[in-house]
Amino acid sequence: MSKPLEILLLDDEVIVGKRLKPALGKIGCAVEVFQDSALAIKRMQEKEFDIVVTDIYMDGVDGMQVLDLVRKKSPRTKIIMITGHAMISLAREAMEKGAFDFIAKPFKPDDLKAVIARAAKALGAPIQFDDKKVGG
């Protein structure tokens, strides 16, 4: 527990950030929440995050473009896609582009926590999270 996991959360739905920020904070993550993808990208230029959680369909730059940008800029960053428009082709495309995981909305906070825990483990900075419910 040296340094908290840096997470950028991007979703144009305000409530998503509002709820997830404290939820993830509890498992030792420092979360920055954005609704506007342009602002989020600007922030990502300034700082390298451990994990980026992004919605896919947004006005302006969409999640897929964010994924491409992050993959290019910091390959070690794990990107988790969340979308209400989950489709088999979209999921496959996201994975091919190097997403760490793909979660369909609606999801429970624990679902995301489990994925973040796995990502943290993959990053070599495991966090405390009891993920009994979601298989690894």
Binding site: E13, R19, P106
Partner: peptide, 14 residues
């Protein structure tokens, strides 16, 4: 509808 549902689900669980 998944977007509002997700908001509800997250809020309820929190």
């Amino acid at each position: 509808i998944n977007n509002p549902l997700n908001n509800i689900m997250l809020t309820v669980h929190m």
